[in-house]
Design a protein around this nucleic acid. Sequence first.
DNA 1: TAAAATCGTTCACTTAAGTGAAGAAATCGG
DNA 2: CCGATTTCTTCACTTAAGTGAACGATTTTA
Lengths: 193, 193
Amino acid sequence: MYEVLFNFLSKYMSLSEEEKNEIISLDIFRSVKKGTILLKEGQQSKDSYFVLQGCIRTYYVIDGEEKTTAFYTEMDVLTPHCIITKAPSEYYISCLEDSILTVSNSDMEADANRRFPRFETLCRMLSEERLTLQQIDFDQFRTSSPEQRYLNLIQKRPDLLQRVPQHQLASYLGIKPQSLSRLRARILENSKA
Amino acid sequence: MYEVLFNFLSKYMSLSEEEKNEIISLDIFRSVKKGTILLKEGQQSKDSYFVLQGCIRTYYVIDGEEKTTAFYTEMDVLTPHCIITKAPSEYYISCLEDSILTVSNSDMEADANRRFPRFETLCRMLSEERLTLQQIDFDQFRTSSPEQRYLNLIQKRPDLLQRVPQHQLASYLGIKPQSLSRLRARILENSKA
DNA sequence: TAAAATCGTTCACTTAAGTGAAGAAATCGG
DNA sequence: CCGATTTCTTCACTTAAGTGAACGATTTTA
């Protein structure tokens, strides 16, 4: 299990055995059942998640409707907004599948940053990279139609189509479930003709 | 001029006179005329920008049409995607108004990160904060209609309505200029009735 | 300052998304 | 294994965005 984590980290830096042991000693793995709510609207939390296996999602409840805004799968890091904004959470985090996560407290991270410059470098690089990749996603979302977004999703994250209910994908694409259903029928129709 | 920069940085950490002098010695200020293209599609660059005064924007050219995806105004930092992706730029960066920027090379930043742990901490905090704020923006964009996005823009960045041409705002809102024009007329109509 | 380019609005028409309802299919829970 | 819920699709209708064109109004620039 640690191998998956170390393998991920090795993309950014090589770790000494000592450092690996230090990480292991933190005992941060957690198994989470499908349906578990990790964070509720209004709550505050200091926990960040790294997905080793499975899928978690964030969603808002607006006028009684769930609006899914992100899916986190293998090798993704989720740091709840409320940790940065220091305000109660505006959204929910829930577990879409039985998952294995690492859970790290922001105090632990601050401590690690203080003690290991290399850890801080890793965090800086990771968040700079995430920021840019997300900007690219946002740009793409802004500049394309729902249909293009859907076709793009098929290319970029085909696994989501298999593991996520359609109505959750719909709000992720910025439309209603009925529209996604219609849009899919339209695409199928056009590819036939 | 340095005061504006130091004032910004003081939100994150206090700087010693030595550190301030070090920054001054880098000589990174640059005055840029309206209309100047700072980066072209296909080019690579190592320069990042901090806006002290003025406004710059990023835009893609898709099917011959400009699609504006971001505006950077006072106290905003723009790190071009190509620095992180290490690929040619997919978009343009252009100067909307006569502006005063700081221009920093990514080699300089890497050097500063190596020499000053505090600088690296600052960069980590800034990019973690930017990442979260941008996620919130993206969530809001996903979960709202063009009209809601426009009303939201009036609240959040009223200055943009004054300083940016409408057709650039339109693509920023994910719609066509004609639709923005109509949408504005509709809002005005409704607020009268 | 005059010609050219850019910009914003409007119009008529087309296309696609939102809405509310209904029903079939799949999944879940006891 | 069966009933209940959830999920997905379809339909008819409404609303809003896309398209192409036209026309002033501004701004640019030569």
